[in-house]
Nucleic acid binder design. Sequence first.
DNA 1: TCACTGCTTGGGATCGATCCCAAGCAGTCT
DNA 2: AGACTGCTTGGGATCGATCCCAAGCAGTGA
Lengths: 376, 376
Amino acid sequence: MRAGPWPRPRSVTGPNTPARRATLKDVARRAGVSRSTASRVLNDHPSVRAEVRQRVTTAMADLSYAPDEVARSLRTGANVIVLAIPRPPRNVFADAYFSSLVAGVVEAGAALGRTVAIVLSDVDPAGANSARVDDARGREHSGPSFRLRPDRLTSGGLFAGAIVTASVGLDGLPAQLSAAGLPVVVIGDPDDDAVCSVDVDNERGGAMAAGHLVATGCRRLALLGGPEANASARSRQRGARIEVEASTTTTGAEVVWHAHADEFEVAAGRDLMRECLADLPTAPDGIVAGSDAIAAGVVDAVTGAGLRIPQDVAVIGFDDLSPARTTRPSLTTVAQPITEVAAHAVARLVALVEGRAQPGLRQVSKVDLVVRDSTS
Amino acid sequence: MRAGPWPRPRSVTGPNTPARRATLKDVARRAGVSRSTASRVLNDHPSVRAEVRQRVTTAMADLSYAPDEVARSLRTGANVIVLAIPRPPRNVFADAYFSSLVAGVVEAGAALGRTVAIVLSDVDPAGANSARVDDARGREHSGPSFRLRPDRLTSGGLFAGAIVTASVGLDGLPAQLSAAGLPVVVIGDPDDDAVCSVDVDNERGGAMAAGHLVATGCRRLALLGGPEANASARSRQRGARIEVEASTTTTGAEVVWHAHADEFEVAAGRDLMRECLADLPTAPDGIVAGSDAIAAGVVDAVTGAGLRIPQDVAVIGFDDLSPARTTRPSLTTVAQPITEVAAHAVARLVALVEGRAQPGLRQVSKVDLVVRDSTS
DNA sequence: TCACTGCTTGGGATCGATCCCAAGCAGTCT
DNA sequence: AGACTGCTTGGGATCGATCCCAAGCAGTGA
């Protein structure tokens, strides 16, 4: 499991507690009861007389007592849940999707009285070397590689459970965590049916997007998806394609172009759309983009080419994040309820931790079409 | 301190440890030594015979033992440091500055063997009400208000110390935390001299920016700063103004416009620049922006008005974050070493926690001019 | 040989909470 | 009156590590 000598823990010898915090023992003494009774009051156990309960409560207030979460965790097991985002730190925060997801998970955790810690990928020195090797083979890598080591989440017993965001290269992380006994919920597509997951109905979303374009008169559709390695991106495109093909006989609509971006990013969308316009003899009249950011790039490329939105080309995004509203024209998009998904993930994880749920459950949230100015 | 009944802790009764983790006692038994000796090996205590140390190390590897951080913390005090960002969750992650700062602190913490937890502001129901009151007075508030309650960091004894990011409305938080006995380091301008802080030399950075514009021939400068309530934003502007005034007699350069944005944001920069162009009879020939994002907005407004950069108007930003490189033309900017500042903050906090540093120290990092295409 | 020193090692107490078991007590039923 | 039930309450053990103290042991010098 480990190679070198054990890292020396930092001994904390300094003045760590200038004014000693009150303990439950202090509360008990002041209220004239035992530690047990004080603990019972703290935990709302019913079998305490009202008068005694009042005395203890008063004593707690007088001493401004706050329970020591560390000591409590030692006895009852960890309380903190961890949101694991297996991506390099610098990429996560700039991404509107992850920003929203993090906020949702933190808020949902707080609502259930759970502290949420956030763990991102580490710089991986070994990976850094192999990245250089990859470079030699001609693959593009701008820096060291990153991964999230499972033992950062399992060792130490700090965490009661983990929420893992699915992305490219999950690499069996959820299964490993599960095997180590840590309850896990994946947001997105799990690579393993044995773990719990929450997601949105990406395929249906793709179908709604394509359906809306066809219904508003588009006949030559281009699908510009997110990373092909990303299961959500694939599902969205599959839904769109199936929807178009189902309507072909009645409407004559068809998919005339289909490509995947490297990232869910503005620049990727712009490049892909320029390629599309260059490759096709006639421009498509409707674009299903894999994300709002890609759609924003598409809008940029389309207007740059002198075409009008939505008159010449209609564009539809996915996510309904801030870019959808700030882009000009504003984006019609398939809204995914990120806050709801985050809340589901937290609720499911807490249920797992408390033994109220079984592994392997999947919960899928509905998506919603939001019509704005980029389609007619 | 508290009003209602104590919130009931979530009892974790479920199957929390399906496969029991090895404890130090197990290691000791397997190696044929006492818990004390095993602990000494774990902590690299010198007085253990090499042969015994080897046996214990082997036993640890065999059992894939990992120390329980919760139990360890109970005895030695908390190990985790917390990065407190007194801002609403949804605003933090979209901001390139905070993204970079978070990444830097997390990485620096890891390098020192410290886990970093991140705590953002809570939705504050009371604040939500007062925000509505403010709305009635005509101030703009789009949602509930947020604040970071100090007791979230101090109570529970989960954290060894806190790094607090300075922003608008710090509201005495660092002083309160300090008073509660929690070691604190502020990133930015502390509102209290008694707490430690790390920062960059904002005033010098502002001077460098203005100096560069004057040196490259600008004579009519506009200063478009960040939020006036933000001390860093004020310092940058002050430095720029002093620099220009110092050179006025020899060069004839002057500040012809001066304003503060509400946020360090692209939209704020765009609006401010449009205002500037509308208000001034003659456009300025040099812009000192309070951040790269503001500068990006300025570029947008300037090119939108049909002026060329840098021929007609030179623009200089602050931060050297990703917008500086992706904006067209690329931005000349004052680079602030965020990673270095983050590392300083972590190092100083760990020193405080271990009793190796005194409160009240301030450490200022140098900034650096990076010349790109937005100035000539 | 004895005392002294210094290096290793083990055992018990401790951190602050929870949990289990049993004791105390009042009320009820036979 | 005695047994039984159910509600309160207190004490001890426990979680898994660290820390302190003292014991064991070998080596040194007188």
